[in-house]
Design a binder for these strands. Structure first.
Lengths: 243, 243
DNA sequence: TCATTATTATGATCTAAATCACAAAAAGCA
DNA sequence: TGCTTTTTGTGATTTAGATCATAATAATGA
């Protein structure tokens, strides 16, 4: 039994109002400098090593997590050790808002999949701003509708698609979320085969075999944990994405 | 090919401000009489026969549906005719808010599973109220977090549980949503075996066999489409619900 | 009312993916 | 550095549930 303790070393993170993380249609993109400064006032900036848990399913949260640097998986543990990855989060993404807003325990566990720096903003600070900012409420609704759409799509995929299509789709989900390295081919994220299996909802062995299949077919090129997308159109055809 | 045309007969439905549908923590429970009256102004009250479609996945909505009377299934059609029921709605429930808020096409199809009367409120009326009512935004967020929690739970169930547990859970979901008849035993909803299969994510044959199993085991008593819950504790144990 | 279509039911067969079992390679650690 | 643990990889076997086939029953509608 390996005991992982969260590393609570303070690190150097700019003020929320100076942070480059929230641009485009980020949850916080329309907040005023003043509102963002409120967040910084009582903020804790923690660093997490790969494998460390940010929060556990079933526990209650009292604040919001915002990823300054790094990558995180959101996953639910079933009975008998099976794990299902629900979604990923990366730099700029906000975690834990759902449990905060619904005032309910975390519905899933968040674990760093690489060394990460994650800011924690206490509930009260966020709620104060939310109460007086309709745009923030709208953007929250937007985030939730996105998550819900993806979640419902996943249900269809898992019930109605054979393994090769689910693995293909898993690879495309990773491409969508984390993008490709400068070579424009290799996925910019490192996962174990087990994690890919947990994302696609299959066993590790099946994921390994299927990836190896896609490698033989020339759709992917596997280089250890590096996954190169050789034939993206074919990958899309295989994933047979409905929407 | 059977062509079902929506029945657009006007029926007698009270003003929104007089409607008994929104109590407890209903989405509209805290709206003022004035706000509710705005909804009535431009409302259309339509009746749908069992089997008729309220809206189709992929189409765009321009308003909100509120069920005055009846029951509805929300479902997604996969390729090759397979269908997955995502959730149900009944008297008082609001439909289509997600597509409205996210400004995106319907993510699923809504079909009446019994004769229903459903009110339609145009988008503008709803948005006008939402813009000036923070409580409504909060309640919307609440609805979304609930849906999302259920959806993610469904993913775990489908990937990690054997069929008997999924069917048991499906029956419990129906009990939760539609309750029992005055006899306190029989589910207060009529579904085909195929629909129960579509809810649990299995084939019709498997659903029939599994229900028949539960019947033999004395957990359920099947009487045509009437399902009597004989041993609820055992049903819960079987469903092995995680939360 | 009878004809047609949809639904329920059950048995036989098949198969995709899980499980089991073991070895090699890689990663982590003292 | 060598030692332990984790991860990857492949083959053999099993099995849950899908698929196929066919009949009986119930619902629908002209």
């Amino acid at each position: 039994m390996l005991l992982i303790m969260p590393a609570k070393n303070q690190v150097n993170v700019p003020l929320c109002s100076e942070c480059k993380g929230h641009k485009d249609n980020h949850l916080f993109c329309n907040l005023s400098k003043g509102e963002l400064d409120t967040f910084s006032e009582d903020r804790a900036d923690n660093s997490y090593k790969k494998g460390q848990v940010i929060f556990y399913e079933g526990n209650r949260g009292h604040g919001l997590f915002c990823i300054y640097e790094g990558k995180v998986k959101i996953h639910k543990l079933g009975d008998e050790g099976k794990d299902q990855i629900v979604r990923f989060a990366k730099k700029g993404d906000v975690l834990g808002y759902r449990s905060l807003l619904g005032n309910e325990p975390y519905n899933a566990t968040a674990t760093a999949i690489e060394d990460s720096i994650i800011c924690y903003v206490p509930k009260s600070k966020f709620m104060d701003v939310l109460d007086n900012n309709n745009d923030l409420a709208f953007r929250t609704i937007q985030l939730l509708t996105n998550d819900l759409r993806e979640s419902e799509k996943k249900i269809i995929n898992i019930t109605q698609k054979p393994v090769i299509e689910r693995i293909a789709e898993a690879i495309l989900i990773l491409k969508e979320k984390f993008g490709l390295k400068p070579d424009a081919k290799t996925l910019d994220v490192i996962l174990t085969r087990r994690e890919i299996a947990d994302l696609a909802g299959v066993t590790t062995e099946t994921a390994i075999r299927t990836l190896s299949d896609l490698n033989k077919k020339g759709v992917l090129h596997l280089n250890g944990k590096q996954i190169e997308l050789v034939d993206i159109p074919q990958l899309i055809r295989l994933a047979n994405v409905v929407d």
